[in-house]
Design a protein around this nucleic acid. Structure first.
Lengths: 216, 216
DNA sequence: AACGACCTGTCACAGGTGTGAGGTCCTGGG
DNA sequence: CCCAGGACCTCACACCTGTGACAGGTCGTT
């Protein structure tokens, strides 16, 4: 197997645990994505265990998995992540999805189960369900006006000033912000969360360097 | 001890290893920063082991450490990170630095060494050297309370909730936020700027751990 | 034309926010 | 001892925010 995990502490511990298994051979354990992209390595490996989030300076686990697939049609790919995993189903072409398994990071996963998942993936099992869909990214369900207003709010402009600059009423701005908040922070606790700040953080996150699909 | 680590896999493994030590009692192991901010918990704990990068949706380990300090003057803080750690020295007020230890994440760190570091921090040892300096960042002129309050605000918690969690009055929180805004956004235009958002953005910029010394 | 679905705007209300003025409590000079 | 300076807090005031209810608009469909 090939193991790519960003966090050195987790990688070290996991490597130790996996090496104790007689049926597992670790060809490479690294935190650097491009080290794993090697034809000889990919051809020798039966399966790759890839952290999804490898840090902002390099490709993510999905891209890496696709790269490995292009070197070895039969390699199993296990994506390891603590975040939502349906992203995989959205960006991986369906015909390449065979042998893709997503594995939520959790503290309780016994090492034996992990090994079993790796074996399953190597045999071609697919655990990633094709997107139930109707799921759209929050950003895409914002209207143009809402994005304009939200964008200005995210750069630290107060509502009254946004209204002045867009030549609409203060009420209208607040109404659109309110509607944008519901979309960007649907799970907010009105007693604890500062909606504006949470929405701004989400908005900035969604509008950063990502991602597939739409043009500006 | 209190343990806050974003990555559930690492957290789970570390929790198991630490619980095997007879001299360590884990009061809380969580990935959610604000769960750790609890008066009773902070008073009972001798030391907190905090991951620096807790994810973009919540405060970082330094802010969390400061919040815990405001609940318990004597709690030891161990910041765990794979990144550069001199940020700590730059952003933590020197008088609060006693008992702050920074610990690089690496795969090889024996659990015994970690335990020893935790004990050292609980006893008040300081491993973070006060920055050689002539660097005066806005952050350094914030008081500890202001850092704690601002850190929580920057993670999207509203003032009333911050007050509740830190056991101070809503008025006091707003007063400290107001003072923090003046320091973080000295050039604000009160007619156009949303002070809270601008301060949050500035604050996050200043506390990012990949941020080199010079700004602007 | 009538319909549904969406987007946009207005209004009123409850509650949150930012700030100056002015207290208390320390701490470290003089 | 008294005093200055700072951190922290309370209060009151003016203003800003977030939201439900509701009323047009504009589409594309029936």
């Amino acid at each position: 197997m090939i193991y790519v995990e960003n966090d050195p502490a987790l990688r070290g511990i996991m490597t130790q645990l996996l090496e104790q298994r007689p049926d597992i051979e670790i060809l490479l354990a690294t935190g650097i994505a491009h080290e794993a992209i090697d034809r000889r390595l990919a051809e020798q490996a039966d399966v790759a265990l890839l952290d999804l989030a490898l840090g902002s300076s390099q490709m993510n686990g999905i891209d890496l998995g696709l790269a490995l697939r292009s070197l070895n049609d039969n390699i199993g790919i296990v994506i390891h992540s603590q975040y939502r995993l349906d992203t995989v189903a959205r960006v991986v072409p369906p015909e390449a999805l065979i042998g893709w398994v997503t594995l939520p990071k959790s503290g309780e996963l016994p090492i034996g189960d992990l090994v079993q998942t790796l074996r399953d993936a190597a045999r071609g099992m697919t655990l990633t369900e094709p997107l139930a869909d109707s799921e759209t990214l929050p950003l895409e369900s914002l209207t143009i006006r809402q994005r304009a207003v939200m964008g200005m709010a995210a750069s630290g402009i107060k509502s009254t000033e946004i209204a002045r600059r867009l030549h609409i009423s203060h009420d209208a701005v607040r109404q659109d912000l309110s509607r944008a908040y519901k979309i960007l922070v649907p799970d907010a606790d009105p007693d604890a969360d500062d909606l504006r700040t949470r929405a701004v953080l989400t908005y900035l996150e969604l509008t950063r360097d990502d991602d597939a699909g739409d043009g500006a």
